[in-house]
Lab assay of single mutants.
Amino acid sequence: SHFELRVGTITLHFDNISEELAEELEKLAKNGVHADEIRRWWEEWLK
Results as ranks from 00 to 15, higher is better:
S1D: 09
D36F: 06
L5M: 04
E23V: 12
F14E: 00
E26N: 11
R6M: 15
L5F: 04
E44S: 09
I17S: 01
E37W: 06
E26A: 13
H2Y: 06
K47N: 14
T9V: 08
E37C: 04
E19L: 12
W45T: 07
H34V: 09
S1N: 14
S18D: 06
T11V: 15
G32L: 05
N16E: 05
G8I: 05
A22R: 14
A35V: 14
E23M: 14
A22I: 15
K27M: 12
W45A: 06
W42M: 09
L28I: 05
H13K: 10
H2N: 05
E24P: 01
K27L: 11
W41Y: 14
E4Y: 04
W45F: 10
W42C: 07
E4H: 03
E23F: 13
S1R: 11
R6E: 14
K47P: 06
R40L: 12
T9D: 15
E44T: 10
E37N: 09
F14T: 00
E43Q: 12
W41H: 13
S1F: 14
R6P: 06
N31P: 06
I17A: 03
N16S: 07
V33Y: 15
A29F: 04
W41S: 06
D36G: 08
E44Q: 07
L5P: 00
E24A: 12
K47S: 14
L25N: 01
S18L: 03
A35H: 07
T9W: 07
L28R: 04
S18V: 04
R39N: 11
F14K: 00
S1T: 13
K30E: 12
K27H: 09
E26Y: 11
E43R: 04
R6Y: 08
T11N: 03
I38W: 04
L25G: 00
L12S: 00
A29N: 05
H13I: 15
E37I: 06
E23A: 14
I10L: 13
W42L: 10
E44I: 08
G8W: 05
G8Y: 05
K27C: 12
E23G: 11
A35I: 13
V33P: 04
S1A: 10
F14S: 01
G8E: 04
W42S: 05
V33E: 08
S1M: 15
R40K: 12
I38S: 01
V7A: 03
L12K: 00
E24W: 10
R6C: 08
E44G: 05
D36L: 08
E4I: 07
K30R: 13
R39D: 02
L25K: 00
D15Q: 10
E44L: 07
V7I: 09
I38M: 03
E24Q: 13
G32F: 07
E4L: 03
L46P: 04
E26V: 14
T9L: 12
T11K: 04
